[in-house]
Design a protein around this nucleic acid. Structure first.
Lengths: 189, 189
DNA sequence: CCGTGCATGTAATTCGTTACATGATTCC
DNA sequence: GGAATCATGTAACGAATTACATGCACGG
């Protein structure tokens, strides 16, 4: 067994941090919310739960089965909380941001309330930095490759670049907004 | 064996449409260009090639091995070209756009020169439409769920929404730009 | 002639998907 | 009592990753 959990594993582990949930609860969340795009199929969720349990990251909530229905809820163990915290604290590299922005946003979503607000500020700054570096690489590539590309090829590339550009400016805005709010709060006290 | 190729399969098939390439050529492309984020590992590329060959979508280019180096290039067969064309012609649903925008951009990138420019216009319109519908769903969800979310959760969701919003406005701009250019060309003739 | 990079592959493992299977409970 | 849905799983399969393995050719 691999020591680390998969992306789906961490998503489930994060959800169990909020409140104990059963596999069915998790499936419903995946099915009804656009948070990430995880499969709500039982063949994905139940094996993930068993994997987390085998790693000692979650445990069954004992007793009761409210309502009489069969139902097995899970909650994170101390080891699970440690592992999740380590995952949250990892800083994104420019390459990871370029290849898998969704994973970074998943991380960001779960940061609070496990880590303090300062971690959110740090994460935003890291994301902005990484996006800037990645954008530079994209622009460099485009400059060299654009002449040989078809119009539709250029369009597709442009769409990708634009996405990162807008992400970076979003991160910057979010960071500054938070800084402003923090300053105001500071002043008032 | 599944009749349809995987996403990696179609990406490779598309690259082989441009010019015959060997597995090594494909790996280098994946390693050095940011086009999609495919693995350049041999364990991904060579099995993909064999899969396409087994489906009858590509064939070995016979003869020569320029330079004396060992090298096996592939090119699409008639069946492969048909299959790729069918893949290109598929219109994205709002759900697919929401769940896997990258796949849609991959498609867009390969549209030309296999399909005519009009197909690009149609694809842009479909993408814009799908993004609009998806955005509506995101907004609806956010309205209901935001009060219960943590600040970092809201931030992550906002980032995702912003990404789609910017994608949609990019698609609209691109579409209009193309319409303008086409109109000017029409007038001049 | 020896290392570096070209070039192609295999093996073990893990993850996820689709589809199937099962039983219990609540609602009507 | 029958349908819907709650709730949990398994089986078969496909695809991808990492790591390992091999052999040739070209440059110095």
């Amino acid at each position: 067994m691999t020591p680390r959990a998969s992306r789906l594993g961490f998503a489930v582990l994060g959800l169990l941090h909020q409140v104990p949930r059963s596999g069915y609860d998790v499936r419903k969340l995946f099915a009804t919310t656009p948070l990430g795009h995880f499969s709500d199929s039982p063949g994905a969720v139940y094996p993930a739960l068993r994997g987390l349990e085998a790693r000692g990251f979650i445990e069954k909530v004992p007793g009761k089965a409210a309502g009489g229905r069969r139902r097995q809820a899970f909650r994170p163990t101390a080891a699970g909380r440690r592992a999740f915290r380590r995952w949250l604290e990892a800083q994104p590299t420019p390459d990871e941001v370029g290849k898998d922005l969704d994973a970074q946003l998943l991380r960001l979503a779960f940061l609070e309330p496990i880590l303090p607000p300062s971690a959110v500020d740090r994460a935003l700054a890291a994301l902005e930095r990484a996006a800037t570096i990645h954008l530079k690489a994209l622009d460099r590539f485009f400059e060299a490759a654009a002449p040989a590309m078809t119009p539709s090829g250029r369009l597709a590339f442009e769409a990708g670049t634009e996405g990162f550009r807008s992400f970076r400016s979003w991160a910057r805005r979010a960071r500054r907004r938070r800084a402003r709010v923090a300053a105001r709060r500071e002043k008032r006290s």
